[in-house]
Structures are given as C-alpha cells and as structure tokens.
C-alpha cells in the first residue's frame, strides 16, 4: 500500500482537529483540537519523509513535537489563570469582549 494513504489519513485528522477548534466552546477541548492538527501535520511529514526516502521529514516532526509540548505548557498556564479568575473555561461565558 502506498504511503500516500497516510497523508490522506493525516488530512482527515487535520479536518477533525480544525472542526474541534471552531466548534467546541470548551477551551481545553478546542486546544486538544489544535494538538490533533499539529499531530496530523507530523503524520504527513513522516509519510512524505518515507516517500522521499529521506530523514528530513522525521527531523521536522521532532521539532514540532518539542514546540507543541512548549505550547501546551503556555496554553494550559493561560487556561489555569483564566479558571482561577472566573471558575469557568467556557469560551462563551466571558461576554465582556464582543463586537
């Protein structure tokens, strides 16, 4: 089976992640959607790396992994700060900023 099928799989996961970011009102779930998108990109990179017979795509996946981990730390830090302040993490609740 051609490795390009994994790129198709990655695209499907990417779309699911994007939908989660746009649809879910819970900040943590939306954030998990972003993580899924980054992982989909990683899968595509690794699949392409296999197709080109080079290691470069894998190396990029390593960088993405590191960056994603750092991003999670900052993101969850912000989410905790928001939660401490107002005891909810719904993206709808804070209606102070609209318009």
């Amino acid at each position: 089976m051609d490795p390009i099928n994994f790129v198709i799989l990655a695209s499907i996961l990417f779309a699911i992640g994007a939908a989660a970011v746009l649809l879910r009102r819970n900040a943590i779930i939306a954030f998990m959607g972003v993580e899924l998108m980054l992982n989909a990109a990683n899968l595509a990179l690794v699949a392409f790396s296999r197709m080109h017979g080079e290691i470069d795509g894998q190396i990029m996946a390593f960088f993405v992994l590191t960056v994603a981990a750092a991003e999670v730390v900052v993101g969850l830090g912000i989410i905790i700060a928001v939660f401490r302040a107002r005891q909810t993490i719904s993206l709808d609740e804070p209606a102070e900023l609209k318009g």
């Binding site: 970011v21 954030f31 990029m60």
Partner: peptide, 16 residues
C-alpha cells in the same frame, strides 16, 4: 496556535 498548525500543515504539503 490554530494558525501555526495551518502553517505547519501547509509546510508539510510543500515538503511532500
């Protein structure tokens, strides 16, 4: 984070 994920997926396609 959403936008950087989009950028990354695009970069993956260009690499591919």
């Amino acid at each position: 984070a959403f936008s950087s994920a989009i950028l990354l997926f695009g970069a993956a396609f260009l690499y591919g």
